[in-house]
Design a protein around this nucleic acid. Structure first.
Lengths: 138, 138
DNA sequence: CTTATATATCGAAATGCATTGATATGTTCC
DNA sequence: GGAACATATCAATGCATTTCGATATATAAG
């Protein structure tokens, strides 16, 4: 099993492990070393960008109930009790899904008296759905 | 609890249930009935579109490992053993994630001898990531 | 301040998903 | 055909998420 720690010694060990397979792959040890170095650098760059909120966005959209909510809201603002009516799901379930969408930044709320009206937070949400649809159609 | 079945009788019953809360919400029974009708029609339209593959796309992107793979592949084609080197994860784990991305249509494979090279399936994948990033930045 | 209503949060059960070692499949080379 | 290697699939384990009833919070009205 490869180590996940970051200190220098285990990093060197891990590099040794990787070289086993990559040397064979590439055919020469120096080329393999070079490739590993490039991959590590690229990975470091990728891990430095915080991907958490991106993942949150995708997680939020990755549920049938929540996709339905997003598609409903494409037509305009709705309050919670309208959404639960449309979904045909209990209030606690509906509310839970709304809070996940809200925390991911996909929807916004507006209070009007005792009612909360939800809407898509931005045109980017619609674009996100469009891109997913594009991908599915191929 | 609201019924999930589709036949006429239970649909009427369910409509009655919904009217309880929506009538109060809107203030007049006729307006409520109208609203419920609209919501049901909208929902029927939404459920008719097959959202499954869209959900598959979002599910595939909703994992730290897999987001990393997508970002790696933005730089160009890589074979499995390069990807597992970069991710620092066992082969079976890496392969599993690749198969999910492949089935969702986000990546494609190309065989070259005993190696499989993976690449992003389309520019739409990059656009998808961009839209998610846009959303997170607000 | 009490009651009614709309929504959020909690807690428990059920389900789904990520991870990984072990094993199977497919490819190359001899 | 058999050995070596790259990758996929299987099966078991543990963790995360969904669902939903029960309860809490917030707002409005009397």
């Amino acid at each position: 099993m490869l180590s996940l720690s970051n200190d220098a010694s285990t990093a060197v060990e891990a590099e040794g492990d990787d070289l086993c397979s990559l040397t064979r792959l590439i055919g020469d040890p120096d080329g393999a070393k070079e490739t590993v170095k490039k991959l590590r650098a690229l990975m470091k760059k990728i891990e430095k960008e915080d991907s958490d909120s991106e993942i949150g966005v995708f997680k939020a959209a990755a549920d049938p109930c929540r996709i339905r909510i997003l598609k409903l809201l494409k037509e305009g603002e709705l309050c919670v009790c309208e959404i639960m009516t449309a979904l045909n799901r209990p209030q606690s379930t509906t509310s839970h899904h709304l809070s996940i969408l809200r925390e991911a930044g996909l929807i916004r709320e507006r209070r009007a008296g005792k009612w909360l009206h939800y809407r898509l937070s931005d045109g980017a949400v619609i674009e996100l759905l469009n891109q997913a649809k594009l991908l599915k159609d191929k």
